[in-house]
Simulated scan of single mutants.
Amino acid sequence: MRNISDTIARLSAMRGRPVGSGQSKDDHLSDMTGFGSNPGALRARLYLPENLPKQAPLVVVLHGCTQTAAGYDRGSGWTELAAEQGFAVLFPEQQRANNANLCFNWFVPGDISRDSGEAASIRQMIEAAVVTHGLDRKRIFVTGLSAGGAMAAAMLAAYPEVFAGGAIVAGLAYGSASTIPEAFDRMRGHGGPSRTELQRLLRQASPHKGPWPRISVWQGSADTTVVPANADAVLAQWQSVHGVGERPTRTEMVDSQTRKVWSDGQGRDVLEAYSIAGMGHGTPLKTSGDDGLGKAGPFMLDVGISSTGHIAHFWELTEPKLRRKANAETASGAALQPFAPKEKPRAVRVDPTPEPANARGTAGGITKVIEDALRAAGLMR
């Protein structure tokens, strides 16, 4: 007999939006197969611009709940920017068999640990893309929204030697939750590990001792789905390894929004945090003008500042003809070891998932999904 969680998940999956098998005309991504044992059972989608230069950078982009890789790309404009600047983009994509609402399983220890589950699948995709297309190991970056942002935080913690930089948009700190109830609490800003414990979790996630990726954090001040306290937790986690204090080196206004910056002892900007005034849950966009990118939609919020453009600039990807030589301050560039993860059968899970009720975002979507599923199963009136 199935347990209640499994039953709800299956009912929710039936009620969820269908993911079409055909490729739409505005889907610029190709499927990448045979990239490894894929213990997390994820789909890999890749974009390579025409005339990709040798040793080009790679950006890994993780979509949010209820989204697909192609949908998040249309909204965020990452492949649009990649075509202009000459870098590859990898989009891992969640499957409904793993999560009924297409969330990456950021709160499941077996999916965020080094060489395990979904984290291992993403790592395998990166390795396959680098080897197959001759990409630059010292210029690999990862970003994501919401559950994808939390999974980006997990990848940065589990494999810090792989990434030169990361960006977490409305996400959560690595290891902040390990159960469904904890995940709901953390999203709402309740409880969670202390600052010291967060830093311990990051240091123990891998054998890496530095140097560390530079981190960009983006948060809406009016986000009630993943509240701003989570951005503070992400910053606290990375301030220790970068040797910077809680107080920023400088605070400035960028596109009328507040940007805080932390610089290391060599004067290099290693952490930045944007607080978008009045914005709810989603990715900040600027879709018009010469620097416009992407398209507004659910969780893709046109608020006059392009997180995609500013993140790429922070990573030094968008300077004209930029082909800098990576050094020890960005990534170790150590040879990557082959994977041999222990694969286990996957179980369908119910996960905290912000359903797009409105542009500001709410935490009520998942509650409605569960209640509707329970009613359909005759378990609730």
Score class of each variant (00 low, 15 high):
353 T>G: 15
195 R>T: 13
233 A>V: 02
322 L>N: 07
370 I>S: 00
99 N>H: 10
155 M>I: 05
27 D>Q: 09
14 M>P: 00
150 A>N: 03
309 G>F: 12
208 H>E: 04
146 S>R: 03
3 N>K: 09
174 Y>G: 00
165 G>D: 01
293 L>Q: 08
366 I>M: 14
57 P>N: 04
210 G>P: 02
182 E>F: 02
275 S>Q: 13
74 R>Y: 06
74 R>M: 06
303 V>C: 09
109 P>F: 07
301 L>W: 01
380 M>Y: 12
84 E>V: 01
161 E>T: 10
175 G>I: 05
283 T>L: 14
49 P>L: 11
260 K>A: 09
20 G>D: 11
235 L>A: 06
315 W>S: 04
117 G>Q: 06
282 G>N: 03
51 N>I: 00
88 A>C: 08
167 A>T: 04
118 E>N: 05
27 D>T: 05
308 T>N: 15
184 F>K: 14
174 Y>H: 08
101 N>A: 08
20 G>A: 14
61 V>G: 04
6 D>I: 09
321 K>W: 03
178 S>N: 14
75 G>V: 01
253 M>W: 05
42 L>G: 04
90 L>T: 06
239 Q>Y: 07
217 V>M: 11
128 A>M: 11
353 T>N: 15
101 N>I: 00
111 D>G: 03
61 V>M: 15
180 I>L: 15
196 T>M: 07
83 A>Q: 15
54 K>D: 14
275 S>C: 02
376 A>P: 01
28 H>D: 08
147 A>C: 13
297 G>T: 01
248 P>Y: 12
30 S>D: 15
48 L>D: 04
189 G>T: 05
340 A>V: 12
123 R>M: 02
249 T>Y: 14
218 W>L: 08
197 E>L: 04
264 D>V: 03
80 E>M: 09
220 G>P: 13
17 R>I: 07
81 L>N: 04
233 A>L: 07
296 A>Q: 12
89 V>R: 07
196 T>G: 10
378 G>Y: 15
26 D>V: 01
154 A>V: 00
40 G>P: 02
137 R>W: 07
371 E>T: 08
150 A>G: 13
103 C>K: 10
8 I>N: 14
99 N>S: 15
289 G>Q: 13
115 D>S: 11
125 M>A: 09
57 P>E: 02
353 T>R: 10
18 P>V: 15
